[in-house]
Design a protein around this nucleic acid. Structure first.
Lengths: 217, 217
DNA sequence: TCAATAGTGTCTCTTAGACAATATTGA
DNA sequence: TCAATATTGTCTAAGAGACACTATTGA
């Protein structure tokens, strides 16, 4: 007999950038169904403790990775009788961004193997319909960046404009013109120049910036 | 005792245009909770018959209004322990568009009073959090139209460019420049001119158009 | 003819895109 | 000095916005 109530879960596509490549966090399933397959981190709603599904997502992500993200946004809801062998299921998909300098803070629980995968090629044979979920999350993220939203949550607290541009390029999958990119930032209230602070490398130092106070992606 | 499983519903914001005003369909609740208050048409998921939530939405809308719409799109999912007095609930919100010449086909069931409300002022004291749901659906719709998507599903099968422009204006809440509007349509594959067909009125007849074959909003 | 609406043309200003030029550092 | 990267400037073309103009009908 099939269950009478749908299984309600929150799944999270947690993105970060490594070596100029957009990555997504996958977890190897330690339980049936789909045992051993790779899936997005996700978990079942607990009505007793979760005030809403956003809290479910935060709780699940925190439990599976040990990190709390400042940014968690709904992508879409996937539902149906056949997407999970346990029966009628409904997943609300979220995406979140992890600053590249905090990747080390992500640690799977002893029981869970985790892996950062190329967001554009997360592998075949993923669990459930999670390949489609990743595509949807990616499309939402790319759409936002295309619309001039800046993915500052992927960067460290202090960053250079070149780093920001490369991050955008990683998401959009195409190169941007340096001049055009910077011109658009001129009247962008979301980022603030850190006067007098520079990143020193092998060549000309680069001006450092940070996200403005009330910044919302 | 609170229920252990969340109540899963699909709610639909069905829009149409009357007298150049964007309207949304409301239903007077015939049952507890919120009996007598106005709400968006919505209904509970039936896992036994609904293959997915899109089908729930279609079924519910069809049952409450008697119309099948060609266009039904997810807006967002609202959830939480407190939004419905019956307990933890989750609503997936959809929006749909009804051609203005099919408004007469909408008929509430004997038990349900229905009403078309101004989409921007649907009234106070709505049931549950449906005021917020309407705002969200409106924002999504406006956003799409702003991005050059044409709400052809709100128009009759044959329409003039002036009608199309007025429809867009109803949604955007601002007037558009005729010349700019038409210039953009020049290379829009979504609409086709009906050669030789005109709408005759009291003044100069207007060229008729229709949505192109594979048109998707 | 006029009023009313349909449809087009034109000018300006803004902005995106391409690409060149300049600036500043360590080696 | 040179190589490498940061940062700015300039030219052009496309598009948006404002607004005027022409076209076609019924009354």
């Amino acid at each position: 007999m099939k269950i009478l109530f749908p299984l309600v879960t929150a799944d999270i596509a947690l993105f970060t950038v490594q070596d100029r490549n957009l990555r997504v966090l996958m977890v190897k399933r330690a339980n049936d169904p789909e045992l051993g397959k790779w899936a997005l981190p996700g978990g079942i709603l607990n009505p007793a403790t979760d005030a809403d599904l956003d809290e479910t997502a935060q709780r699940v992500l925190s439990g599976k990775t040990g990190v709390d993200v400042p940014f968690l946004e709904q992508v879409a809801t996937f539902s149906g009788a056949t997407r999970d062998p346990r029966g009628w299921s409904l997943s609300v998909l979220y995406y979140a961004l992890l600053p590249s300098d905090q990747v080390h803070a992500v640690a799977g629980r002893a029981t869970d193997a985790i892996e950062w995968r190329d967001a554009f090629a997360p592998g075949s044979r993923l669990a459930f319909d999670h390949a489609a979920l990743i595509r949807a999350a990616l499309a939402t993220l790319r759409d936002k960046v295309d619309r001039a939203a800046l993915p500052l949550h992927l960067l460290p607290a202090r960053f250079t404009l070149t780093e920001l541009q490369q991050t955008c390029e990683s998401i959009l999958g195409r190169s941007l013109d340096k001049s055009v990119f910077r011109r658009r930032l001129k009247d962008e209230p979301g980022i603030e120049q850190l006067a007098g602070e520079f990143l020193y490398g092998a060549q000309r130092p680069a001006q450092l910036y940070r996200a403005a106070d009330g910044f919302r992606f």
